[in-house]
Nucleic acid binder design. Sequence first.
DNA 1: GTCATAACCGTACAATGTGTTTCTTATGGA
DNA 2: TCCATAAGAAACACATTGTACGGTTATGAC
Lengths: 180, 180
Amino acid sequence: MDRRQKKTRKAVFEAFTSLLEVKSYSNISVQEIIDAANIGRSTFYAHFETKDELLRAMCTEIFEHVFSDDLHEESTHDFSSRKKDIVGEITHILYHLNDSRPYIKSILSCESGEMFMRYFKEYLVQLFSGELVKHNSDVPREYMLNHMVCDFAETVRWWMKHEQYSAEDVSRFFFASTPF
Amino acid sequence: MDRRQKKTRKAVFEAFTSLLEVKSYSNISVQEIIDAANIGRSTFYAHFETKDELLRAMCTEIFEHVFSDDLHEESTHDFSSRKKDIVGEITHILYHLNDSRPYIKSILSCESGEMFMRYFKEYLVQLFSGELVKHNSDVPREYMLNHMVCDFAETVRWWMKHEQYSAEDVSRFFFASTPF
DNA sequence: GTCATAACCGTACAATGTGTTTCTTATGGA
DNA sequence: TCCATAAGAAACACATTGTACGGTTATGAC
């Protein structure tokens, strides 16, 4: 990727996060982002079709880090001990989420948070559906999956607002309140 | 309230829900609602300041039914047996939610759903905070409260998409997967 | 039934935002 | 150095919003 493109992209992301700290997503106009990023109007539209797509791009970048390859490899390499080690995997993800905390916090602060949550849950469905082989037959499997996904996603949203807790703390809270 | 006002309000609500079944919240313009409701532009703005406020008004109307007085009185009158009867209370609420199902479903079908969820959770916080007197001290009380509220709200959202289950079913699912 | 009130309608308006286009300038990579 | 390509600036048509205003019709109290 061209250096110029990278630079523009970075400027837009930073402008956007700064604005999100000050005002809500729907009250931010594309023009404001452009001004804050100090770029030309046509340049913005060369990179992102809409404001929504900009947000999606930011979320994607975050999640690529949070659910990064080293995590996958790690969990697939020692596959033997994996099944039991969902706790470790969750804690690991929490660590990664903590790295992106400033970005995530600004996104979560308003309506854009709901989009973040939606994308986040897409990843979590994949993560948890493997864990549901032995599910309680009293309750539909699809209910349980939705339950776990929402549960974890909301746990993360809560954590972002409560900095005083560590990844281990939150992992413990999560497993203490969900029937694994 | 004037008959004309009631009529207008009803027309707007119905137009709005019909539109929500066809397209997403943010893609619906005020003008479309006005046309669908077959009213004058200024009439709309005499009733609602913005589209968001219209949604809020609809949600309020729904929740006034769902968390209606007969429910409150019932639960406060026989206070002795109440503590144990959170199950009954939840089931009762689910019944009321089922009455408003068509409206709720259309609202939940897009971004407006997130606003619905937010308002819904405000009510649930009140409902559940009373239930948390005896909470597990391993986990912060505020975490548990958020957990229960989100859990129930998401259960309802899930239910709205899965008509095949009864209120009793869903109540059972909820209590089976949450540590009460 | 009369009549004042208030809710309605329709149109026009300025203001704001969006996404596209065209053309010129600057910059990175071969 | 060269040139493809990204960035920038300005103007465009278009859609949407919220307000204003004057005229019309229905309601409910008497």
